[in-house]
């Protein structure tokens, strides 16, 4: 039972990282209909920035600064690289974001070097007792932070003027334009939001083990999460992220006992298998919008 609870908390913890990343993907997708493959690079850059800033302005200050800096960086990328491509085929734009990802990542890697950099978080690998099971503090912090950030985001989209504008753009860009909404600013803002969320997620990934050049792979786990939840659904992104985290964690704990023939590291790819299974049944994800087409 302890093992079960530990796996669950670990799954929810990593799952909430995936949720943050998935929210970024979905926010960009909703406003621009593009999946940004640059998210992994922004996540890595955020973590690296914190590892440099933390000794100077304390860990929490560093996280705030990094989130803002990465948000501005993402905004800049949107303005310079993505804006000329408005109206071009989404696939082409998606590939451009891969190019952005490569460039940002190579530059970031130069700042990592060959060593593992520590982000200087106060939790490390310390554990605490939670409902009778020993769980790592950092997972609880991740769950808590993600809950707060997600709630804030939902309130923002639901009640603020800008949030309303973003929803309008997601619904119909031309109509939104006709209502006097600056669609360009919405694009820029959604990239900035996604960048900030990615930076935050990056810090969480780096707690415990630190930052190395392979960290970016983690961000790709958000892709099965958004497909599971459906590309258009913010709620789906959160649910999908948590589901991916839990599946990964449970496979890590139990698969060795139940299905050893799948190989020792199957947990790492289990989310992709789950994604394929769900898509066979629901081609638009769990909460995605079924496209109605006409000629």
């Amino acid at each position: 039972m302890d093992e079960f609870l530990q796996s669950l908390i670990r799954g929810l913890g990593t799952g909430s990282i995936y949720s943050l990343l998935a929210l970024g993907f979905v926010i960009i997708y909703k406003s621009t209909q593009v999946i940004s493959f640059a998210q992994p690079a922004f996540m890595l850059a955020g973590a690296v920035l914190v590892s440099y800033l933390a000794p100077v302005v304390s860990f929490f200050g560093a996280v705030l600064v990094a989130a803002v800096v990465i948000a501005v960086l993402a905004l800049g990328v949107e303005r310079t690289v993505l804006r000329p491509m408005v109206g071009k085929p989404v696939f082409v734009v998606a590939i451009i974001t891969i190019g952005v990802d490569v460039v940002v990542r190579v530059v970031t890697n130069a700042f990592i070097g060959l060593d593992v950099r520590q982000v200087g978080d106060p939790w490390g690998l310390t554990t605490m007792s939670f409902l009778g099971a020993e769980v790592q503090q950092r997972y609880l912090v991740m769950i808590g932070t993600t809950a707060v950030v997600t709630t804030a985001l939902f309130l923002f989209f639901r009640y603020s003027r800008i949030g309303l504008a973003m929803r309008a753009v997601a619904y119909d860009q031309e109509v939104a334009l006709a209502q006097g909404i600056s669609v360009g600013s919405v694009f820029a803002l959604s990239w900035a939001l996604a960048g900030g969320l990615a930076a935050l997620a990056g810090v969480f990934v780096a707690t415990g083990a630190g930052v190395d050049q392979q960290l970016w792979i983690v961000a790709l786990k958000a892709l099965p999460a958004i497909i599971l939840g459906g590309l258009e659904s913010l709620g789906g992104a959160v649910v999908g992220g948590l589901a991916v985290g839990i599946v990964e964690s449970f496979f890590g704990t139990y698969q060795g006992d139940f299905a050893p023939w799948l190989g020792p590291n199957f947990a790492l790819v289990a989310p992709y298998a789950l994604m394929l299974l769900v898509l066979l049944v629901r081609p638009y994800g769990l909460f995605g919008k079924k496209e109605v087409e006409r000629l």
Binding site: Y29, A94, I227, V269, Y272, M275, P283, Y284, G285
Partner: peptide, 17 residues
Amino acid sequence: GLYLAIVTLGLVFLGEH
């Protein structure tokens, strides 16, 4: 569209494993 792109991406990860 992009659903397909991500599913084929999943294929690469499963294959790699």
